[in-house]
Design a protein around this nucleic acid. Structure first.
Lengths: 203, 203
DNA sequence: TCCTTTTTGTATCGATGACTACAAAATATC
DNA sequence: GATATTTTGTAGTCATCGATACAAAAAGGA
């Protein structure tokens, strides 16, 4: 017995995808209910009956973003043959993803609520947790590279992970400011050119 | 004949400084008139009589921020003996400024309106212009270093400038997420460790 | 003292924010 | 067809947004 009453007149996944694009472009606070319902093609009562609230809709949109847009950037960190290849892939894929078609420029996780305080601490905390998870992911990969002999034991894995994650966050600002794919790739290339110096000297 | 009527009951500079802190902490949209007037210790009519509007108050706050907080980071780019010293000073001073006392963490120019669209395009454009001015400043300094023989003629000055500015933007996100001064200094150190590789190979 | 000028506090404006009450509409079950 | 259940659109809730009208208060110039 899946559904009894009147069937829903719209596709939940499609509506969520539209909401994600609005949040991605405008941020959490700047995305009004009027903006959301217009983009989703539904009225406010349908939104609340389906997603609960603006905040929970945003959380679902974040989860969708991580699952679709973010996966291409981060999913191969574990499987890449070397830590160097993993990070190089992250940066190059970031440059590509941030300048892809009509999608908003830059990362939703970085740009959607950067004030880190205000009316919605849940929102800020969730985004911050996602950002820090990426740093931890890189750090773990670097530590594995040390264990596997790719990098020397003196490698400061946390510092290097923080460094590359910081650059990747900065690329969101550059992308939102209109940087081209070539510009972002050149930035990634600059960062990778220091790899040997970074992983051989001082801990 | 400086003043005729009832004298102003508050200090304009001090009130502007308070407003700057509110905008710096909360961003442009999230800073409500109630927040501003409470922090400035004045009522709304005094604010509008003195500063014109919320938008012009913000623009004055940005100018004050650049003049006070930002000057320590960027003012010595021209006067530093080498381009390397200039950039190293920018990054190290950034780490120090972003973790100084009770001030908000991270750069107001980066964090106050990152959505780059919405109700106030003037605000977004002004902040974007400030960000890009810093990139141009670094690029000019690097070109001068090429002319003076510090760097080879094959140096890709624009790419290197974009790279370091991007990292500096990312440090705002890290600072707002709670990164310590030591963490930010380690990030700056990682970026500088690639200097030789960055300035000797490929254009 | 009276008049002009400017600032002050109070109280409010219309617009918009997120959110919901309610009844008509549309389906499954009986 | 009758009833129960869920979704739909309309209209509206209260709170807050940025911005002001207005008159009392506080100063200088006559």
């Amino acid at each position: 017995m899946p559904q009894r009453g009147r069937p829903r007149g719209f596709d939940r996944e499609e509506a969520l995808r539209r909401a994600m694009e609005v949040f991605w472009t405008q941020g959490y606070d700047n995305a009004s209910l009027a903006d959301l319902t217009r983009a989703m093609g539904i009225n406010a009562p349908s939104l609340y009956a389906t997603f609960g609230s603006k905040e929970s809709l945003f959380q679902e949109a974040v989860a969708l973003y991580v699952r679709t847009e973010g996966s291409g950037i981060w999913e191969q960190v574990e499987t890449a043959p070397t830590a160097r290849a993993a990070i190089e892939h992250v940066l190059n894929t970031t440059a590509e993803a941030f300048t892809r078609g009509p999608a908003p420029r830059g990362c939703m996780i970085v740009l959607a609520a950067p004030q880190m305080q205000g009316a919605n601490p849940h929102i800020c905390d969730a985004l911050k947790a996602h950002r820090q998870a990426n740093g931890c992911l890189l750090e773990r990969r670097l530590k594995r590279a040390v264990e596997e002999g790719e990098l020397p034991a003196s490698t400061n894995c946390r510092a290097i992970a923080n460094y590359y994650v910081t650059l990747q966050h900065g690329m969101s600002i550059q992308a939102r400011d209109g940087a081209s794919r070539e510009t972002l790739l050149a930035i990634a290339n600059c960062a990778m050119s220091g790899w040997n110096a970074l992983t051989t000297q001082h801990g």
